[in-house]
Simulated scan of single mutants.
Amino acid sequence: MSPDHDNPRATAPATAVDHESVVDAACRITSIVRRTPILTAAVPTPNGPVEVVFKLEYLQHGGSFKVRGSLNALGRARENGTLPAAGVLIASGGNAAIGAAWAARYWDTPCTVVVPEAAPPAKLDRLQRLGATVHRVGSSYADAAAHASTLARELGAVKLHAYDLPDIVAGAGTIALELCEQLDTPLDCLVAVGGGGLVAGLTAGVRGTDMIHGVEPVGAATLHRALAAGAPIDIEVNSIAADSLGATRIGNLAWAAASTGRIDSLVVDDTGIVDARRWLWDELRIVVEHGTAAALAPILAGTVTETAGRTLCVVLCGANTAVSDLG
Score class of each variant (00 low, 15 high):
173 G>P: 15
173 G>H: 10
176 A>V: 08
177 L>M: 06
177 L>I: 15
177 L>T: 15
178 E>D: 14
179 L>Q: 12
179 L>G: 05
183 L>I: 15
185 T>G: 02
186 P>D: 08
188 D>N: 15
188 D>C: 13
189 C>E: 08
189 C>G: 03
191 V>F: 03
192 A>D: 04
193 V>A: 05
194 G>Q: 10
194 G>N: 13
194 G>D: 10
196 G>L: 10
200 A>C: 15
203 T>L: 12
203 T>F: 15
206 V>M: 12
206 V>W: 09
208 G>S: 13
208 G>K: 11
208 G>I: 04
211 M>Q: 13
212 I>K: 05
212 I>F: 05
212 I>C: 04
212 I>M: 08
215 V>S: 01
217 P>Q: 06
218 V>A: 14
218 V>P: 00
220 A>H: 08
220 A>N: 04
220 A>G: 15
220 A>D: 08
221 A>N: 03
222 T>W: 02
222 T>G: 01
228 A>Y: 06
229 A>N: 14
229 A>P: 10
229 A>G: 05
231 A>L: 06
232 P>Y: 01
232 P>A: 00
234 D>E: 02
234 D>P: 03
234 D>R: 12
235 I>N: 11
235 I>D: 09
235 I>V: 15
236 E>W: 00
238 N>V: 00
238 N>M: 04
240 I>W: 00
240 I>V: 14
244 S>W: 06
244 S>C: 07
244 S>V: 15
246 G>A: 09
247 A>T: 02
249 R>C: 00
253 L>H: 13
253 L>F: 14
255 W>E: 02
256 A>S: 13
258 A>S: 15
259 S>M: 11
259 S>T: 13
